[in-house]
Structure formats: C-alpha cells, structure tokens
C-alpha cells in the first residue's frame, strides 16, 4: 500500500473519531438545554487537540515504518490523486455550507448554522481522504 494511502486511512479514522467526539458532546449538551447548543470553546479545543495530537502520532508511526517513502515527494500519479480528491471534497463542503445557510434562512438558528458549517468542514476533510483512498485503489 502506498505511503500516502496509509496516511489517508489514518487521517480518515482520526477525523471520523474526532468528529464523532465533537458531535456527541454537542448533541448531549443540546439535549440537556432543550435547544441547539451554542458553540463551546472547550469542545472546539478538544476537537483540534485530538486531531493534531493523533495526527502527529499516527504520521510519525507511519514514517518510522517506511522512512524512504515518507520522504519521497508525490509523483505524477499521486499529485493527480491529491488534486482530484481536493477538487471533489470542495463540492462536499459547498453542499454542506449551502445546506447550513438554507437551514439558517428557514429556522434562524445561528447555533445550528455554526455546527452545520463546522460539520461541513469536517465532512469535506474526511471526504478528501476517502476519495484519495478510492482513487489509489480503483485508479485515477
């Protein structure tokens, strides 16, 4: 398996796990409040710290397993895969943000707008890595 595909798997797992952590907290607080929870800095910081620390550990572990591949720059096929994945993940974010804006226009819920926009960012990042994995496996 190419080094960058391994990285994509690790990042998909990390981002999915961190996203579940964040939205479980938000859902739990929203349930307690009886309305959409406001953005909570502690949750956001928790999400960022979780993603940053686990990414560093995961990527260091992968690099130690195959140091040669880790240092090599992306070749022409990998650059194409990264470009396509970045392109398609942009659509995922656009759909999420537009949905968030429409939701705000109808329900006037600013807290939901924040969470939906943040969720769109997460979803587009996860989609980017998932698309990379698909392209590595099925061909560009």
């Amino acid at each position: 398996m190419p080094f960058r595909e391994k990285t994509a798997w690790v990042m998909t797992l990390i981002l999915t796990g961190a996203g579940i952590y964040y939205f479980q907290k938000v859902a739990s607080l929203s349930g307690a409040l009886g309305e959409t929870a406001p953005p909570v800095m502690a949750f956001l910081i928790g999400y960022v710290v979780l993603v940053v620390l686990t990414s560093i550990v995961g990527n260091i572990a992968l690099a130690m397993m195959s140091p040669g591949e880790a240092e090599a720059p992306a070749d022409e096929r990998e650059k194409m895969i990264l470009d396509k994945a970045g392109h398609w993940s942009g659509y995922v974010m656009a759909v999420g943000v537009i949905s968030a804006l429409l939701n705000y226009a109808v329900f006037q819920d600013g807290h939901m707008l924040f969470h939906a926009a943040f969720g769109s960012l997460m979803a587009s990042q996860i989609a980017e890595y998932l698309i990379q994995i698909v392209l590595y496996r099925r061909g560009v």
């Binding site: 591949e69 022409e76 096929r77 990998e78 061909g139």
Partner: peptide, 17 residues
C-alpha cells in the same frame, strides 16, 4: 521518477503515465 506503486498501477492498466 515515480513510485513502485505507480509502476504497478501502470502495469495493471489502472494508470496511463
């Protein structure tokens, strides 16, 4: 100037260089 995996993908017809 490509990775081994890219050569494999070319041989399997999954990538045109």
């Amino acid at each position: 100037g490509v990775t081994r995996q890219t050569v494999i993908a070319m041989e399997q017809g999954r990538y045109s260089p």
